[in-house]
């Protein structure tokens, strides 16, 4: 575990009005690691994720991507965001563009690739998520699972150093969840550094290297999946996993 640190988050705070959603969150993530963030809804997990590429501005605290401080006042966020892939819960594919154009847009307008290069690269990514034959389809013509896979391809095409997944399967019908998790699993297998906010305990347990349990804006417990899922030390973690177990009949073993 001596590979280099990709993300360092230090004492992150964020409040919306009277409600403090992040109360001093810190962690580090090394190259090639897949980190799962689990916990009850509304405990700041998505906010934390959005702070990492500053789609949401943190109130205080510092974040680094490798050696660059993301939270610096003079940081060119458009440059940083190119290096961080973000996958939304509700996909947010550009509704007026085909799957291919969705993947190509960032390559052409941000990375300034030629149309030919961009197309080639985009097709490679679509193949990677198994949707090459849907290149010409518009978002409305794709299933939720397919849309999410295109949005993963869109993020991957930018050659990110880090991928952030914000509950990528929460908006999907149960039968479509598998295909998206498959893609993410393959990605983790290839050594992509990633942070996944998820309610899919099975995925967190079998694919991720590290799990963070968050509640009410703080990290309650952190460790490798076998510790968190099999021997949680904090009573709140035990309670939460117990409830999930009741609901789904086991913690996804």
């Amino acid at each position: 575990m001596s590979s280099k640190i990709v993300v360092r988050v230090e004492d992150l705070h964020k409040r919306y009005g009277n409600e403090e959603v992040l109360k001093g969150v810190s962690f580090i993530l090394r190259q090639g690691e897949a980190l799962a963030i689990i916990g009850p809804s509304g405990t700041g997990k998505s906010t934390l994720l959005r702070c990492i590429n500053r789609l949401t501005e943190p109130d205080s605290g510092r974040i680094w991507l490798e050696d660059t401080e993301i939270t610096g006042a003079k940081t060119d966020m458009n440059k940083i965001r190119q290096q961080i892939g973000f996958v939304f819960q509700d996909f947010n594919l550009f509704a007026h563009l085909t799957a291919l154009d969705n993947v190509r847009l960032g390559l052409m307008k941000v990375k300034k690739l030629s149309k030919g290069e961009a197309s080639e690269r985009a097709m490679t990514e679509l193949k990677r998520v198994g949707l090459a034959e849907k290149a010409k389809a518009y978002p409305a013509q794709l299933s939720g699972g397919q849309q999410q896979r295109v949005s993963i391809a869109r993020a991957l095409a930018m050659d990110p150093k880090l991928m952030l997944f914000d509950e990528p399967t929460s908006a999907l019908d149960p039968e479509l969840i598998g295909e998206v998790l498959q893609v993410m699993k393959a990605l983790a297998g290839e050594g992509m550094t990633m942070v996944v906010v998820t309610h899919e305990m099975g995925f967190a347990r079998s694919v991720c290297d590290e799990v963070i349990f968050m509640e009410q804006g703080v990290i309650v417990e952190q460790g490798p999946p076998e510790h968190i899922f099999l021997q949680p030390r904090q009573p709140r973690t035990q309670q939460f996993l117990g409830k999930i177990g009741e609901l789904y009949g086991g913690t996804g073993s």
Partner: peptide, 25 residues
Amino acid sequence: RGQMLAARAVGLTNVQAIGYVILPQ
């Protein structure tokens, strides 16, 4: 609003996002 967020997440500037994503739609 997700369209704007997604555009910014890809690295487009505000003006680019309006020009390439919001206005065409």
